[in-house]
């Protein structure tokens, strides 16, 4: 009982007092909430693309009485897709350079690499649009057959991911330009970069499994 009485008067029995507006507790892991969230999201996204890729693989060779038209694999232009895959791969490199620049507080260089990354991403998307329109001209629309539905859904989902990434990169460029993001918030760029690299590794898988493996 004496303890309790003492506790009431002096230090709070239950807790530490150094927790006010200016002394936020460090996180348990020492990692920021934002970065942990992004990795959790990427882990979750693995399941999303896993489901889409397996849907495509399980659908691409199935035929029924009403199947018509070519399959997506019949129309692949491997040299063209190789180039756009290479472009996306290089955009990962420019992204990582943007991150290291801002970590060294080289803001101009960071802005340049951010824009380059966004531009390379846009080239990839333009290539995908070109590929899709080519397929459509050759008679392979979204509704033509099972393999086309699965192919366009899978690559379309990836394309939407890339496009969102481009929007984020351009936003980051604008925020860096306006001075809203300085070197102290390099981690924001790093987190966007994680997302961007993830989109790239998904394409590494799609390029090998969907395009190259016969």
């Amino acid at each position: 009982m004496a303890d309790a009485a003492e506790a009431q008067t002096s230090e709070p029995a239950y807790g530490r007092t150094d927790w006010d507006d200016h002394h936020h507790l460090p996180t348990n892991t020492g990692l920021t909430n934002e970065k942990v969230t992004m990795w959790a999201f990427l882990g979750s996204d693995c399941l999303l693309f896993g489901a889409l890729i397996s849907t495509y693989l399980l659908s691409r060779n199935r035929v029924g009485p009403a199947t018509r038209g070519p399959t997506a694999a019949d129309l692949f232009d491997i040299p063209f897709t190789s180039v756009s895959s290479f472009v996306l791969l290089m955009s990962s490199m420019t992204m990582v350079l943007a991150v290291t620049s801002i970590q060294r507080a080289e803001m101009e260089r960071c802005k340049m690499w951010l824009l380059t990354t966004a531009a390379l991403g846009s080239i990839f998307i333009a290539g995908q649009v070109y590929e899709f329109t080519g397929f459509y001209r050759e008679g392979l629309g979204f509704t033509t057959n099972l393999s086309s539905s699965a192919f366009f859904t899978l690559t379309g989902f990836h394309g939407v991911h890339v496009s969102l990434g481009i929007v984020m990169l351009v936003t980051m460029w604008a925020l860096v330009t306006r001075g809203n993001i300085g070197p102290e918030r390099a981690e924001t760029i790093e987190i966007i970069g994680l997302y961007w690299h993830f989109v790239d590794i998904v394409w590494i898988v799609i390029f090998a499994v969907v395009y190259l493996i016969p």
Binding site: R62, G64, A66, N145, L146, S148, S149, T153
Partner: peptide
Amino acid sequence: ANFFNVAMGA
């Protein structure tokens, strides 16, 4: 789309 269109082999 044809994901569950059995006539297309789904």
